[in-house]
């Protein structure tokens, strides 16, 4: 008798599917109703909220800002994490596991506490700013609060651990013997890196970049705390619209646009990447 594993899965699937569909359908459907006061909504289906989103600068600017910040974080996080992941993946001692475990530990400590630490580091009377002022590097104290750049730093703390873990997994799948082979045949180190390691890890790198980008597009806590009421990314705007203005319809519209744009950017990047890969294979 063969086990019917898909039957064992059925209750989980039904429950997950119910929670996913019920919550999303009820909520997103609200985007097609006009918000009346006190959290109530109209009864006629309308595109009004969507028209408002794309005709009101508040929303469009926030969308553009969210994309810019997320792209900046994805790029910076990737550039910083890749060498770390590579070095740890190629280490031959037990230390490599300890270093990775430290990353796991740092990743799963709540972002609220990391932001608390960042606020202390960048406080105007803090050690960092006193040192920078004394050295004459800056003329007034560096601050992250209420600055898009500060939100980028906060989001990097949110995503960097995950990026290192994912890239570590990617690089571990590339046999070190390939690098040895290229080296033995006389390739200089940079060439081995450029022609062997980068191309082989590229699919994983792109997936990692997209995961980091998606995490940032949806990130709320660090954006809200560091943005401090001055930097409005879409997730922060959703919370404000729902909690302080009780406009569930508009909140649903912003959420729908956020998820649709994120999905679109993911599909487009994957499309471009496959095209490039095909083109390279054809010309090679």
């Amino acid at each position: 008798m063969k086990a019917r594993w898909h039957f064992i899965m059925a209750p989980s699937l039904i429950l997950s599917l119910f929670l996913l569909l019920a919550s999303q359908i009820i909520f997103l459907r609200g985007g097609f109703f006009k918000d009346l006061r006190l959290g109530r909504s109209g009864t006629d289906l309308t595109w009004e909220n969507y028209v408002r989103f794309f005709s009101d600068n508040i929303y469009v600017d926030s969308l553009v800002l969210t994309i810019e910040v997320s792209a900046a974080v994805a790029l910076l996080t990737l550039c910083l994490s890749y060498p770390v992941a590579y070095i740890i993946a190629r280490m031959r001692s037990r230390w490599s596991l300890l270093l990775i475990a430290a990353i796991v530990a740092a990743s799963f400590i709540t972002i609220v506490i990391k932001v608390l630490g960042l606020i202390i580091i960048f406080s105007s009377g803090g050690a960092l700013n006193r040192a920078l002022l004394a050295l004459g590097v800056v003329s007034k104290p560096l601050t992250i609060m209420g600055q898009p750049g500060g939100v980028v730093v906060g989001l990097m703390h949110f995503t960097m651990g995950f990026a290192v873990l994912l890239l570590y997994g990617v690089i571990r799948t590339i046999p070190a013997s390939l690098e040895d082979a290229a080296t033995i045949h006389g390739a200089p180190r940079w060439r081995v890196f450029w022609r062997v390691i980068i191309p082989l890890s590229l699919p994983g790198v792109i997936v990692t970049a997209l995961i980091v980008f998606n995490l940032c597009m949806g990130a709320f806590t660090s954006a809200a705390l560091i943005g401090a009421g001055k930097v409005y990314t879409l997730p922060v705007l959703i919370q404000q619209t729902v909690i302080f203005q009780t406009r569930y319809g508009m909140g649903a519209t912003i959420s729908a646009v956020l998820m649709a744009v994120t999905l679109l950017i993911n599909l487009l990047s994957l499309l471009v990447v496959t095209r490039l890969a095909v083109a390279r294979r054809l010309t090679a």
């Binding site: 997950s16 929670l19 996913l20 019920a22 919550s23 999303q24 009820i26 909520f27 997103l28 609200g30 998606n214 597009m217 949806g218 990130a219 709320f220 997730p235 959703i238 919370q239 729902v242 569930y248 909140g251 649903a252 959420s255 956020l258 998820m259």
Partner: peptide
């Protein structure tokens, strides 16, 4: 895997509505 793709804020509001 869908819960990982939906922004947590959206999960929050949509469960509130649910």
């Amino acid at each position: 895997r869908a819960p990982l793709q939906i922004p947590a804020v959206v999960i929050g509001v949509s469960f509130l509505k649910l």
